[in-house]
């Protein structure tokens, strides 16, 4: 049957295939925008990382000076590692919050599960900037959190632990990214055959034993991809640290951004971005996204 479609499509005489040019035109149409506005800019960007700047002008002579600077300058590497660690902490925190929610979702059925899932999806599409702003209003020096802590008598003056520093960035990113962690974990939990859990119970395992020795190991692909998902989103963010990080909350993303603003060193910024991209690729690989995508493509 499918031979017939191929026949009709390739036979220039049939009314279906207008000319021999058609496949090439189709290819051109399909590739034009992705190549011109994605591949070309990214390639140029990579190229820029090997240029340099001289008195505000970009020098188009290849050099690895930008990369050398990153690895030798005492400023950048510590911030880079600190940012990686911060984003890893965000990923772990998000998974800790998201796992129970995802598990709870799998225990629901029908309309209740659907409603809860939608309620978890809605914040994903809500304005990122607004969410940062909202969390900031809670974390501030006279924000809700401090007021609540004062009211309960836990502290007697506003705590500065989470006001305009890296802790604030950590908390804000965690709150912002939890929904991204829930979905992959939920999907992997849902895929675990019920029979396995029943078998575990039949063999005399308690609920807790089944959870720790059957459910958790089998949900690892989802958990890891949730972590890599959150990590990638966190490390690429420069808005959150800018908004709640203050003077001390400098992150890698913020440094890249500053190269295109105040510091005005595009080639160096490009080199830092290439390093960021490398980290992101590693994180995605570790999270097994590629494998999952193939599984999902079918």
């Amino acid at each position: 049957m499918s031979g017939r479609v191929a026949d009709a499509a390739t036979n220039p005489g049939a009314h279906v295939g207008p000319s021999r040019l058609a496949p090439w035109l189709a290819m051109l149409a399909a590739y034009a925008v992705p190549v011109f506005f994605v591949l070309a800019p990214l390639t140029l960007f990579l190229g820029y990382s090997f240029f340099s700047v001289d008195q505000g002008d970009i020098v188009f002579t290849p050099t690895i000076a930008n990369y050398v600077r990153f690895f030798t300058d005492p400023i950048f590497l510590p911030i880079f590692w600190r940012t990686c660690l911060l984003c890893l902490a965000v990923a772990v925190l998000c998974v800790l919050f998201a796992f129970p929610v995802a598990y709870f979702l799998t225990t629901l059925r029908g309309r209740r599960r659907y409603t809860l899932l939608v309620l978890l999806l809605v914040p994903l599409l809500m304005s990122y900037v607004i969410k940062i702003y909202a969390v900031r209003s809670i974390l501030g020096g006279n924000g809700m959190l401090n007021k609540a802590l004062l009211a309960t008598g836990l502290i007697d003056q506003p705590s500065m632990l989470f006001v305009f520093n890296l802790n604030a960035v950590l908390l804000t990113l965690t709150v912002l990214l939890i929904p991204f962690a829930v979905l992959p974990i939920f999907l992997s939990l849902e895929r675990i055959p019920k029979a396995l859990r029943h078998a575990s119970a039949d063999l005399g395992a308690s609920g807790a034993q089944t959870f720790w020795r059957v459910t958790v190991p089998l949900s690892m692909p989802g958990t890891l991809s949730a972590m890599s998902f959150v990590f990638v989103l966190a490390i690429g963010d420069f808005l959150t640290p800018q908004m709640v990080g203050g003077q001390s909350g400098f992150t890698f993303g913020r440094i890249i951004y500053s190269q295109f603003g105040t510091a005005f060193n595009w080639p160096f910024g490009a080199a830092l971005s290439v390093i960021l991209a490398a980290v992101v690729i590693v994180a995605i690989r570790l999270g097994g996204h590629a494998e999952r995508r193939h599984g999902g493509a079918r």
């Binding site: 800019p41 990214l42 490390i235 690429g236 993303g253 890249i256 490009a270 960021l276 992101v280």
Partner: peptide
């Protein structure tokens, strides 16, 4: 890729 990379690549382009 993080949006910052897409954005900067387009900016330079």
């Amino acid at each position: 890729m993080p949006p910052i990379i897409t954005g900067l690549a387009l900016l330079i382009f």
